[in-house]
Design a binder for these strands. Structure first.
Lengths: 235, 235
DNA sequence: ATGAATAATTGTCATAATGACACTTTATTT
DNA sequence: AAATAAAGTGTCATTATGACAATTATTCAT
């Protein structure tokens, strides 16, 4: 494997070169609440303060790859599907040196990923209402991610990423309520979700957390977008 | 004004530094069709081929600022509101040197901005169906921008950015049809748009392009999102 | 065994939004 | 005055929505 920049290659003259970083925002759902994963930053400046999972992009590494690597290194999480959110590049956002940061975000089912997070990593989950002060512009990143998450969730069935393969209707509703910070009527909620044809009821029941037990649902194999696609101007 | 990186400042050791660029995608509407603005690239490699408006971010310059400057330099356009789309950073996307490009996009009313584009710039408008081959990954950037534009237009009244202050109902419908690449029923279309309360009919008529003439509409002063916000899961 | 307690599940009705559909109006041109 | 071209407008059947509360299934306590 060779270095991509060899002596023979032309390079753009007179152009500033800067450090490029990635930051990862991981939202999780534990069946009750939507949470955000944070770590204690491991190096100066701001060492020890709460931070998103971030790191520098390496020479021969694409952005998506870098984000996956950084997440793995700092939390042990692997195979998490992350989407690019936005890029932050104010000249002084990082006091050490100009750093442009590409932000990724993902949704996961906390219970599914509980194991890797355990010991050697100092990552912790925070509910959205109790996010501690974060370094740099990380708080702004999270705010933007939430806006985007809600926007996406309005038009696409993305929130199912946060659930286990089988889930109950009350869990699904809590999830939506958590993400949108509001309550829904349970009769209307289930009517609407079922009408979408996206989920199917199984025969099994989940029997913890309630005396009666709740039926488990799963995603319909033939996943589609909710309603052929939402268009406020249609036909 | 000082340089932000002084000798006294610590810098991150062992970290790769790369060129950061911005590329601008400008969508326009001329009353009939949605179009894309392109220029002949002015430097090697790929000099002379069609390209988005791009340039390098300077040392002390934020990303938004850089995008506005680059657009101005290459097209003369000023005061265009651009939104960040996404960042492209595959290691070999630019064959000269690794370059991470932050992509911005905007919507404008072509007629309003006709003047600045005129002579000394070699920018040209292309209909979406006749986009020529573009350099690097610019075609992919445009594709993503269109997806995003449609997504945004489904939930927010963004398309009005593409229209002059006063516009006719048939123009508005053409715009939506152009962006979504489909036809709408004019009765249902106007019913729906009017029901949103977003636009108001004026007494004036636009009398070119039709014998009868068409009433002019304007945006309602009290702009809101179309319907309090679209939620596929609500209440 | 019985009853109390807890959370899940389910239905109605009035109103609003949607989609399919075609004729009338207005002003110009011939 | 008639033809033409595009703009403007109405109905109806179907579906989606939002507001609303009683019933069911199970466990726990007595």
């Amino acid at each position: 494997m060779q270095n991509i920049i060899t002596n023979a290659m032309t390079v753009y003259p007179q152009v500033a070169r800067v450090v490029v970083a990635v930051d990862c925002i991981i939202f999780g759902f534990d069946g009750r609440q939507v949470k955000l994963l944070l770590i204690h930053r491991g190096f100066e400046p701001e060492k020890g303060r709460w931070s998103l999972m971030g790191g520098f992009v390496r020479g021969e590494e694409g952005l998506d790859i870098a984000a996956a690597r950084v997440l793995k290194e700092l939390t042990g999480l692997e195979g998490v599907y992350m989407k690019q959110l936005s890029t932050f590049g104010e000249p002084r956002r990082d006091p050490v040196e100009r750093t442009v940061s590409v932000v990724y975000f993902a949704l996961i089912d906390i219970n599914q990923y509980a194991a890797p997070l355990s010991d050697r990593f100092r990552a912790e989950w925070f509910t959205l209402k109790k996010i501690p002060p974060l370094i740099f512009d990380h708080r702004e990143m999270v705010t933007q991610a939430l806006v985007r998450l809600r926007q996406d969730a309005e038009t696409q069935p993305v929130l199912f990423e946060l659930l286990p393969a089988k889930f109950t209707m009350p869990q699904l509703q809590s999830l939506y309520e958590g993400v949108f910070s509001r309550k829904f009527d349970k009769r209307n909620f289930s009517r609407k979700v079922l009408a979408s044809g996206l989920i199917v009821r199984t025969k099994a029941k989940e029997k913890s957390g309630s005396r009666k037990g709740a039926f488990l649902f799963r995603l319909n194999k033939s996943r589609r977008t909710l309603r052929p696609v939402f268009e406020h101007i249609a036909n």
